[in-house]
């Protein structure tokens, strides 16, 4: 059961990204293009996803722990710092250039396009580079 829940979570996520067309980066770019032929799809995906998650998380509010784990593993940091804003800005630049963010890019791998593979491999390299940078700067006095 615990393993099935993980697989089904992924399955639902992949189905959602695909049926909404988010796996097609052009659809996302057309959302970001307010001055062009605007496609509002992403707004509806975000609104639907946010509404269901908001209600879902609140329904869990009374529970002390998840079904198959000892505790809820939620982010604890509350500080808005330069790293958060700078990182989000760098992400936005890459997202705006390609129309791919991590979830849709990974899901879109199954359609076998070379551009998608190039994106995902580079994304792994970028994450490892950032991690190396962070551990180096953390080691500085």
């Amino acid at each position: 059961m615990p393993l099935l829940a993980l697989f089904v979570s992924g399955l639902l996520f992949g189905a959602g990204l695909t049926v909404s067309g988010m796996v097609n980066p052009m659809k996302v770019l057309n959302f970001l293009d307010f001055a062009g032929a605007w496609d509002p799809s992403l707004l509806f995906v975000m609104a639907g996803g946010l509404a269901v998650t908001f209600v879902g998380y609140r329904l869990l509010g009374g529970r002390s722990r998840p079904l198959f784990a000892p505790a809820f593993d939620e982010p604890v940091s509350v500080t808005v710092d330069r790293r958060l804003i700078g990182g989000a800005a760098i992400f936005g630049l890459g997202w705006g250039l390609t129309g791919f963010c991590p979830g849709p890019a990974i899901a879109s791998l199954v359609f076998g396009r070379p551009e998608t593979f190039a994106f995902v491999v580079a994304m792994a390299a970028g994450a490892l580079l950032a991690r190396a940078f962070l551990s180096r700067s953390a080691a500085l006095p």
């Binding site: 760098i90 890459g94 580079a122 994304m123 580079l129």
Partner: peptide
């Protein structure tokens, strides 16, 4: 784009 997205999200 992938490099920027990987680094930025990390």
């Amino acid at each position: 784009g992938g490099l920027l997205v990987g680094a930025g999200t990390a």
